[in-house]
Design a protein around this nucleic acid. Structure first.
Lengths: 337, 337
DNA sequence: ATCACTAATGTTAACGATAACGGGATATGT
DNA sequence: ACATATCCCGTTATCGTTAACATTAGTGAT
């Protein structure tokens, strides 16, 4: 039997004071006598009064909520980022308005931002992967956006708060490790090259090879789409073209999983004949057969850091914007390399 | 150079009409002449005016936002449920206020609900697993909750909107399949028994055995905690105690993964010596070695259905509450059984 | 006793929007 | 010609809260 919302008026009436006095008690202002304060507080507790953040945000122009734009959160990456965002937001007293785009490559930036802003959020976290031209739409709207925005895992641009995983360094880590294992012919199964992250990982692989005096053979590259089945296709192509290949950097763990399965079917022993390194460190990776070596990226930390950056901008709009924050991935060596 | 928010007043002033007229245009009300309507619409487009949902919700008592209570969304289950919730909410024109509890077994229901209600949400989706006594706290607060609430994947109770996966049927599916494969000694690695879902799966296993005239040996049961490493421990105990065991129902895919790894190390061939069936159908399952047979639960659909139920209650508060909705899981047979 | 000041509380307006009502102009009916 | 209905638009009150200002009573100084 749902009771209606308890308002400040009811509290004021019950306590026999003005709403302003109740407001002062709720907000811990000094101008209230101890007696009154206690009495009002008792009434508040008794009625179970909770101030409306909606009404408060109208008058104060601050809602203590953040807009989050993300893509399909049932995937490993976005869900971990969101978890981090959530943790820090909650800690700092902010709530989240969630906006998931069904297709990261197709959206109307103007409409999206208006929708988000209609909830009077204090800031926006852009947690969408940078794919194709999808950064440009939002970029054009930035000039007349009335709240700060922080970007996660996209190419840093001047004067924009950005927090990224250093995917390029991650690619180098993986490749360096394979070289140190004495591998001679190191192929790569990339992510979709329309993704900025995927290009960065490939770049890291390329740079590390060159830095070690190896030549880069373009036919050692094959492109996947992050799915295990694309890992299967990728490894099949690589091994067909280059039977001498003795190591592969799969740009995420799921593709690595598919690749290992097919490689075994094609008669390769892992890691003896073929070493594999993945990227992500999904919880299943240590239990693959063999346990997968991989590059760990702390996506949750990235989410946390993004919120911190955003709140810094909110609380000090004229703040100096620091260089983009780069979170370093870590190599985790297991049995596949 | 952030412009301030465009309000209805500015639009009215620019267009030379009253705010009420602008409001009528925005809401497509009839009492506006075609000329005026067009003129106002032009001004709206030109200024980029977007009505404030905050202000609107104050006066109308409806915010078109839903509160979602969930646990760690970086996990497989919660993230998939949330994705479904999000999809349908967006489709129906609702936004989400996200509330994640750091520990599903410890929370203050009263405080939590007040916090959520302070955003004037139109309804609440309870997407927390039922663990230990954690359902009771919220249950006590229900009587003075002023908006409808729908529960996901918890034990149905009278007069409460509930959408669940039929975990018990899932447990029976898995066990039936193993029996049909001619397996004689079927063990189980359960989830944590404080979880309702885990108990239901175990119950299904138990029931199916009994229904087929088998006796249930309690030492064929071992308890895991959903993690792959607990699957490793579980299978080790089961095979130590009962070397004759020729099938195991692991109550999620991650535990199945750990179990398969250790079973192989203990010299069992899968599926020849030991059949394994998991639960969930995580994206990696088809690529395990061997490909994992499992029980697929459509968590996203459960989220979608939950929103539909909730909106039905919101739009018709006196509605007859139907029986709890039970979503049937499906058996997916691959190579591990 | 008067003034100035402080402490405690109340009053009014405002945030951005819509509901409810009112009223002028035109059209319709007799 | 007059009452009545219809169309179109404006005015006022309101949602729940807080900012800004106003008021009252008491305190201390002169």
């Amino acid at each position: 039997m749902s009771r209606k919302r308890v308002t400040i008026k009811e509290v004021a009436q019950t306590a026999g004071v003005s709403t302003q006095t109740v407001s002062r008690v709720v907000n811990g202002r000094p101008d209230v006598s101890p007696d009154t304060r206690q009495h009002v507080q008792e009434v508040i507790d008794q009625l179970g009064y909770q101030p409306s953040k909606i009404a408060r945000s109208l008058i104060q122009g601050q809602s203590f909520s953040l807009g989050v734009v993300s893509s399909n959160i049932s995937l490993y990456g976005p869900s971990h980022v969101l978890q981090g965002i959530q943790e820090t937001a909650k800690e700092m007293g902010y709530s989240l308005m969630l906006h998931i785009l069904p297709d990261p490559e197709v959206y109307e930036a103007k409409k999206l931002l208006r929708e988000i802003m209609s909830y009077h959020v204090d800031g926006i976290l852009w947690a969408m992967p940078e794919i194709g031209q999808n950064r440009d739409w939002i970029q054009q709207e930035l000039s007349n956006l009335s709240v700060p925005i922080a970007f996660l895992n996209v190419q840093p641009r001047p004067n924009q708060a950005t927090v990224i995983i250093d995917n390029r360094a991650g690619g180098r880590l993986a490749t360096k490790h394979l070289l140190e294992q004495g591998r001679q012919n190191i192929g790569i199964i990339t992510g979709p090259m329309s993704w900025w992250e995927a290009r960065q990982r490939e770049l890291g692989w390329r740079e590390e090879l060159v830095a070690n005096g190896r030549s880069v053979d373009e036919s050692y590259i094959t492109h996947g789409d992050w799915t295990p089945s694309s890992g299967e296709r990728g490894i099949r192509m690589l091994l067909d073209w280059h039977p001498e290949m003795d190591a592969v950097f799969a740009c995420n763990d799921q593709m690595a999983l598919g690749a290992m399965k097919i490689a075994r079917q094609m008669g390769r022993r892992i890691p003896e004949d073929l070493a594999i390194v993945g990227f992500d460190n999904i919880p299943e990776a240590p239990y693959f057969d063999p346990a997968l070596s991989t590059v760990y990226q702390d996506l949750t930390e990235m989410g946390r850091e993004g919120v911190k950056q955003l709140l810094a901008m909110i609380n000090n709009p004229d703040a100096y914007r620091p260089d983009p924050i780069r979170i370093q991935p870590e190599l985790i060596v297991r049995d596949s390399s």
